[in-house]
Amino acid sequence: MAKAARAAQAWKAYREVTRPGTPGLGARLRAIPRLVGSVLNGSYPGMGRGKLAMLGLGVLYMISPVDVIPEFLMLIGVVDDFGVFLWLMGSLLGESGRYVEWERNHVRVLPS
C-alpha cells in the first residue's frame, strides 16, 4: 500500500470516529466483541463471516512472529505491518460504528 493510500485511510478512520453524532472511539471498541458474536450467530446482517474471517487473519498477521516482510529489513518490514494495522483499525472502527448504529435502531425495549 502506498504512503498516500495509508495516510488517506488513517484520515478516513479518524474522520469517521470524530464525526458528530456517530459513536465515539470507546463505544466502537467496546462493541467489537458484540459485533463478532452477532456476526457469528447470524443476527447482524451488516457484515458477513467472510469479512470477519479477513479481519481475523489481519489480527493473526499482526501478532504472528512470521512475517511476509521480516522486520530485520528495517523500514520495509515495519511498513507492511503498519499498512495491515491501518487497514485493520479502519475496518474494525468502521464496522463497529455501523454495528453500534444498527444496535441503536434494532434493539427492542423490553416492557417493564
Rank of each mutant, 00 (worst) to 15 (best):
L73F: 07
V109M: 14
F85R: 13
R6W: 04
L73G: 13
G97T: 03
P45N: 06
R104V: 02
L73H: 12
R108I: 04
F72N: 15
M89E: 10
R28E: 00
R98W: 00
V66Y: 07
R98L: 13
M89D: 03
E95V: 07
R98D: 03
T22A: 13
D81K: 08
A10M: 02
L73I: 11
V109I: 12
I69G: 04
G97V: 01
V107Q: 11
P65E: 10
A13R: 00
G97P: 00
L110W: 10
A7M: 13
G83C: 03
S112Y: 12
M54S: 08
M62Y: 10
P111N: 05
L25K: 14
V100Y: 01
H106T: 11
A2M: 13
A4L: 08
Q9F: 12
G21C: 02
L35K: 03
Y61K: 13
I63S: 11
G21R: 00
F72R: 09
V78P: 07
V68S: 07
M47I: 01
R15G: 05
G58W: 03
L110Y: 05
W87A: 13
G56D: 00
S38W: 08
R108G: 06
W11K: 10
R19V: 10
L55N: 10
E101Y: 04
F85T: 14
R6F: 06
R19Y: 07
I76Y: 05
A2Q: 09
S91I: 03
I63K: 06
D80V: 12
A27Q: 14
V66H: 15
V107Y: 12
L55I: 12
V17M: 01
P45R: 11
R6K: 11
L35G: 02
S112Q: 09
R28K: 01
W102K: 04
R15P: 04
L60W: 02
G42I: 01
M54G: 14
G50F: 10
P20H: 02
G46Q: 00
P65C: 15
G56P: 00
R108W: 08
R30D: 04
A31C: 04
K3R: 09
L110F: 15
A53W: 03
R98C: 05
T18Y: 03
P33H: 06
P20V: 02
I76S: 11
G90A: 15
L25G: 09
A4Q: 12
S96N: 02
L110S: 06
V84G: 05
L52H: 01
G24E: 01
V59G: 12
E71K: 15
L110P: 07
F82Y: 13
L25P: 06
V107S: 10
M1N: 12
V39T: 00
S43R: 10
L35W: 03
P33I: 03
G42R: 06
V78G: 12
S96Y: 02
G42H: 12
F82K: 11
R15I: 11
M47C: 03
E101S: 11
G24P: 01
G94R: 05
G21A: 02
R34K: 06
K51D: 04
A27K: 05
V79H: 15
R104L: 02
R34M: 15
Y14W: 12
M1R: 13
G24R: 09
E71W: 06
V66N: 06
H106D: 01
P65T: 08
A4N: 04
E16R: 14
L88I: 03
R30P: 08
S112R: 15
R104T: 04
E103R: 10
F82W: 08
W11T: 15
L52D: 00
L73S: 12
V79S: 11
Q9I: 06
